[in-house]
Amino acid sequence: MNYKFIPVIPAKRLLAALARFILSHNLLILLCWLVLLPACQPSGETWARVQNAGILRVGLDPTYPPFENADGGQLEGYDVDLARTLAEEMGVEAEFVYFGYDGLYDALATRQVDVLLSALVIQPERTRDFAYSEPYFDVGQRLVVPAGSPVQNIDDLSGLSIAVELGAEGHVQATQLARRLPNLEIITFDTAGEALAGVANGESAAAIVDNIAALIHPDPNLHIISLPVTVEPFALVVRIDDEQLLRELNQALSRLEENGRLESIRQAWFNQ
């Protein structure tokens, strides 16, 4: 039996040598990173709870048709269908909890729900405390023209007229546009639906309305220009530390997009 000689090194010298090695190899940062890594791990706590309970608690304000509405006692809407389908895709069941619009984020922060799905626009200012999913709908302004119109974007409107809902965001956009296109005439209507009717009956060459208005007033004589005038994406919201849940939601959204179920929900509510 051969024994190799193992020198006995004092602990102090060993530690000093280790420290020199770490410093000389710039490993200090790596060491800190390894120590701190567990604390930075995404929390899977909420996702584990959702899985264990089999329930995804969804917060919403049911006063915003066609996205969520409970006026008739029956909760329904685009977001409601999306929440149920997402939950099904994730192997759990959606449970809806109602809040006022301005209380939604507080409800999420205080863990009364797992996710918000209530036609909420992504707000960069909130991303310190909350995380947003991939967008599932764009509510931004759209240019709507008669079918077959030569107008293909807002720059083609010079010398023409544009229909808008009085005072709405489309009106603001048109007013801004009129500073660039001096011959643009703005015609105001009381509602977005009337503005669209104004285009259909030839009163105006185009309308600027939000995407919801454009979709809920389907008219075969009108065409929605695909290039948006403005972009305002709706997304699901989770707490910033619920990265695992967010990942699951995004993956489920992606699968729904791929298998066509998201499109089916869109068609069901907007007759696309």
Partner: peptide, 16 residues
């Protein structure tokens, strides 16, 4: 107020 979702708001044209 003409917020699209606040329960105490009116339409933008009404606000004007």
């Amino acid at each position: 107020n003409d917020h699209p979702r606040w329960t105490r708001s009116v339409r933008p044209g009404q606000r004007i």
